[in-house]
Design a protein around this nucleic acid. Sequence first.
DNA 1: CTAATTTAGTTGTCGTGACTACTAAATTAG
DNA 2: CTAATTTAGTAGTCACGACAACTAAATTAG
Lengths: 149, 149
Amino acid sequence: MDTQNQVFSYIEPEENSGYLLWQVTMQWQLSMNRALGKMELTLTQFSLMAGLYWLGEKKGAVTQQQLADYANTDKMMTSKVLAVLENKQLIERVKDPGDSRAKQLKMTDKGIEVLREAYRVVKAVDDVFFKDVMKDKVVFDGLLMRLIK
Amino acid sequence: MDTQNQVFSYIEPEENSGYLLWQVTMQWQLSMNRALGKMELTLTQFSLMAGLYWLGEKKGAVTQQQLADYANTDKMMTSKVLAVLENKQLIERVKDPGDSRAKQLKMTDKGIEVLREAYRVVKAVDDVFFKDVMKDKVVFDGLLMRLIK
DNA sequence: CTAATTTAGTTGTCGTGACTACTAAATTAG
DNA sequence: CTAATTTAGTAGTCACGACAACTAAATTAG
């Protein structure tokens, strides 16, 4: 066969690490969003709330930019999602007394309660999803960590 | 410290496989979209074109639903992205003669040309992105494949 | 001190990605 | 054969996620 006109060098998509990574992550994300959907949360909303909780425990006051840096989300998207979380009364945004451009983020009691429950849900989904690679978790996580720039 | 009121059991997000997977994939996707952006393509558009090319090589005529099944994309999204690709004259959609509900997909010459170039770009990005795990590719891909449902 | 630059946050656009709801055609069941 | 169901595709909604462009406040440089 004339391979000159072939677009690909006969590499099945299934042999492509990037494609596999993408497929797996989309499935994981879908599982998470479906599970969290029952409590009216998205994965991104959960992720920002969890990040805020963590940073809050570590550093006290947290601004939107600090949270965005921590969660590797851009500040524009972060701003919008936090506005949604504020509307749901899961967090509060108050003017930073020291820097009037910034806003300090605080979780409400309701927010902490929802986060606690969401965390259980997320953990349960993860346990099922990663069940088949559980015994290789260290290897798996190690490989992933090598890929984070 | 009183751990009863803690939301999490002191598990850093960095130790969570799902979180790592998500972060890595988002970075991979961003690299891909930036690289493909130079040729006015998105990763999803490339992915559907590549899938169409593959299926076409294997089976000849391809419908939207078949492509959606192959690429694990939902048919609604697939329909919209294919409409975009048709507008760009990278593919054609013609009525299936055997099933008047269905549309047969065909790549145009321009589409094949763009796909060829896009494939080079994608391959180059992948080579850089996965450079650090190249020697463990078999292990890495194996783990990912175990996670695909 | 004042001008230039940087930083924190918002608004709006585009392209997925999941989903509901719909049309029309094909298939299956009775 | 006809009714019920399934299938292929489209339209529209919501929520990211990347980005450009913007305001206003803080910081730095001269």
